[in-house]
Computed example of a mutant assay.
Amino acid sequence: MARRRNPFDIFGDFDEMFEEMLKEFENMGPGEHESGPFFYGFSINQRPGEEPEIREFGNIRPESGKIEIGERKPLVDVFDTDKTVQIVAEMPGIEKEDVELSAEGRELEIKASHGERKYHEFVDLPADVDIDSAKASYKNGVLDITLNKIQRPSRKKRINVE
């Protein structure tokens, strides 16, 4: 008989995904999972008046039904202020020399590789930014990037009606 799901159980799907991941680990042969660590997570961010944003991070891709180890997706937070856009990415286990950043339009690409540890993520920026203003620092596993917004002067113009 099928189990009835409690409509108030918002984590039911996550429980099922976690159980599937554990089964995959149990079915692996010796030595197949010694290249860890394995991690998967998500962050939920909700701004007032907007729908919640759910972002995944980690080096396991459970959506395929199998455990696929690859590049890690760092946990990334984007802060939109009046004059700047700040991006904070958690990428432990690398050196600042390992980080590559590039930006085009409203997209920032973060790449880093140190030994077997690899990170890669595309970040959608919430505003147009001045790429030449970019400042980045990496300390204690945290990458901090600040970009100035492009300030477009607003001007008033009279429009003739024909």
Score class of each variant (00 low, 15 high):
Leu101Asp: 01
Pro30Phe: 02
Glu20Ser: 11
Pro52Phe: 05
Gln151Cys: 00
Pro153Ala: 07
Ile94Arg: 01
Ser102Glu: 12
Phe8Lys: 08
Gly29Gln: 14
Gly36Ile: 12
Ile94Ser: 02
Ser35Gly: 06
Glu116Pro: 07
Gly49Phe: 10
Arg47Asn: 15
Val88Trp: 01
Phe57Pro: 00
Lys157Trp: 06
Asp132Met: 04
Glu104Trp: 02
Ile54His: 03
Gly70Glu: 12
Asp82Gln: 11
Phe8Trp: 07
Ile54Trp: 09
Glu116Tyr: 08
Arg5Ser: 11
Ile159Phe: 03
Glu34Leu: 12
Val85Leu: 05
Ile145Asn: 01
Thr146Phe: 03
Glu95Ala: 14
Asn45Pro: 00
Glu97Thr: 15
Met17Phe: 07
Arg4Gly: 08
Ile69Pro: 02
Asn148Ala: 13
Ile131Ala: 10
Ala136Phe: 06
Arg3Cys: 01
Ser102Cys: 05
Asp144Trp: 01
Ile110Gln: 02
Ser133Thr: 07
Arg61Phe: 14
His114Cys: 11
Asp77Gly: 09
Glu90Lys: 14
Pro126Gly: 06
Phe18Ala: 08
Pro62Gly: 10
Phe25Asn: 05
Gly58Val: 06
Tyr138Gln: 06
Asp77Ala: 03
Arg47Val: 10
Glu53Arg: 11
Val161Cys: 00
Ser102Asp: 15
Leu108His: 04
Asn27Gln: 13
Ala127Gln: 05
His33Ile: 08
Asn59Pro: 09
Phe57Asp: 01
Pro62Asn: 08
Glu56Ala: 12
Phe11Leu: 06
Ser154Ala: 13
Ser102Tyr: 05
Pro92Trp: 05
His120Lys: 14
Met28Thr: 07
Met17Thr: 15
Asp15Thr: 01
Ser113Thr: 11
Gly29Phe: 02
Leu108Ile: 03
Gly70Val: 12
Val76Ala: 04
Glu53His: 06
Glu104Ile: 03
Arg158Asn: 08
Val85Arg: 03
Ala134Asn: 00
Arg152Ala: 12
Glu116Cys: 00
Glu63His: 11
Glu63Ile: 09
Ile44Ala: 02
Tyr40Ile: 08
Met28Val: 04
Glu24Thr: 12
Glu71Asp: 14
Tyr40Leu: 04
Asp130Leu: 11
Leu75Arg: 05
Phe8Ala: 06
Glu162Gln: 03
Phe42Pro: 00
Ile54Asp: 02
Val99Gln: 02
Arg106Lys: 15
Thr84Phe: 10
Ala134Cys: 01
Ala134Ser: 07
Arg61Ile: 14
Arg106Met: 04
Ile94Gly: 02
Val129Ser: 01
Tyr40Val: 10
Ala2Pro: 14
Lys118Pro: 06
Ile145Leu: 00
Arg158Met: 11
Lys96Thr: 06
Gly58Pro: 03
Met21Glu: 08
Leu143Ser: 06
Ser154Phe: 09
Gly49Glu: 12
Lys157Met: 10
Ser137Tyr: 01
Arg106Gly: 13
Gly93Ser: 13
Val123Thr: 03
Ser35Val: 10
Ala127Pro: 00
Asp144Tyr: 00
Ile54Val: 15
Arg72Phe: 05
Arg47Phe: 06
Ala112Leu: 07
Lys66Val: 09
Asn27Thr: 07
Arg3Asn: 11
